[in-house]
C-alpha cells in the first residue's frame, strides 16, 4: 500500500515538476525507458520531462546549500572545512546559474511548482529547510562542524539521487553532462566530509 501511495505521489510530482507544454519534442517516446535502458541522447538540443525535473530539483537545492555553506565559511574553526565549503559554494553558484539559464531558455518554471507534501517520502524536495538552517545557526561552537557536515552530507546525497535520475532518463546532452559532474563531485565531497566528521 505504501508503495502504491508513493507511486501515486510520484506520478503527481512528475506531473507537477515537468510540463511538456511548449517544450521541444522528446526524441524518444517514454516507452523506451520501460525497457530498462536510458533513452538516447538528443542530438538536437531537445529535452524531456526528466531533464526539466532534474534542473528544477537541483535549482531548489542550491538556496539552502548556499545558506549552510555561508555559515560554514564564517563559523567553522577547521580550515579544511572552511576551504571545502568555499569551493563548493562557488562551484555550485556557477551550476545554479547554468541551470536557471537553461530552464529560462526552455520556458520552464525555475522550481517544481507542486505541493511540497507530494514530495515527501521519496526524497523529492531538499532535506534541508529553514528548521535545519536555524539549527546550524544556533549550534554551539563545539558542535558546529559536526552539525554542518552531517547536514551537508545528507543534502549532497539528494543531489546524487537527482543526478542518477537524470542519467537514467534525461536526453539533453548538456543536462546529462552536468548530471555526471553533479554525481562525481557530490560523491567526492561526501567522501571528504565523512572523513572530516569522523
Amino acid at each position: 500500500m505504501k508503495r502504491v501511495v508513493a507511486l501515486a505521489a510520484a506520478v503527481l510530482v512528475l506531473a507537477g515538476c515537468g510540463s511538456t507544454e511548449g517544450a521541444a519534442p522528446a526524441a524518444q517516446p517514454p516507452a523506451a525507458s520501460a525497457l530498462g535502458s536510458p533513452p538516447p541522447i538528443s542530438p538536437s538540443g531537445a529535452f524531456n520531462d526528466t531533464d526539466v525535473m532534474f534542473l528544477q530539483m537541483m535549482v531548489g537545492q542550491y538556496g539552502p546549500a548556499a545558506e549552510l555553506l555561508d555559515l560554514a565559511r564564517s563559523r567553522s574553526t577547521d580550515q579544511k572545512v572552511r576551504e571545502l565549503a568555499a569551493a563548493i559554494a562557488v562551484t555550485q553558484a556557477d551550476e545554479a546559474r547554468t541551470m536557471r539559464d537553461w530552464l529560462a531558455t526552455w520556458k520552464q518554471a525555475p522550481s517544481p511548482a507542486a505541493d511540497p507534501h507530494l514530495h515527501e517520502g521519496h526524497g523529492g524536495l531538499p532535506a534541508t529547510g529553514p528548521k535545519e538552517i536555524e539549527a546550524l545557526r544556533g549550534a554551539a561552537a563545539a558542535d558546529f562542524d559536526k552539525t554542518f557536515l552531517n547536514l551537508l552530507i545528507g543534502h549532497q546525497h539528494q543531489a546524487v539521487e537527482y543526478a542518477r535520475m537524470e542519467l537514467g532518463g534525461g536526453i539533453h546532452s548538456g543536462a546529462l553532462e552536468l548530471a555526471t559532474r553533479v554525481d562525481q563531485t557530490r560523491s567526492s565531497e561526501i567522501a571528504m566530509m565523512l572523513g572530516m566528521v569522523a
Binding site: 508513493a6 507511486l7 510520484a10 506520478v11 510530482v13 512528475l14 515538476c17 515537468g18 517514454p30 516507452a31 525507458s33 520501460a34 525497457l35 530498462g36 536510458p38 520531462d49 526528466t50 525535473m53 517520502g121 521519496h122 526524497g123 523529492g124 559536526k146 557536515l149 552531517n150 552530507i153 545528507g154 546525497h157 539528494q158 539521487e161 537527482y162 542518477r164 535520475m165 537514467g168 532518463g169 565523512l194 566528521v197 569522523a198
Partner: peptide
C-alpha cells in the same frame, strides 16, 4: 522505469563512528 524520474527512496545512516 517509465518514471525513471523517481529518485531512490533513501533516508539515513550512521556517519560517525563510520
Amino acid at each position: 522505469s517509465l518514471l525513471v524520474g523517481v529518485p531512490a527512496d533513501a533516508h539515513g545512516y550512521i556517519s560517525s563512528p563510520a
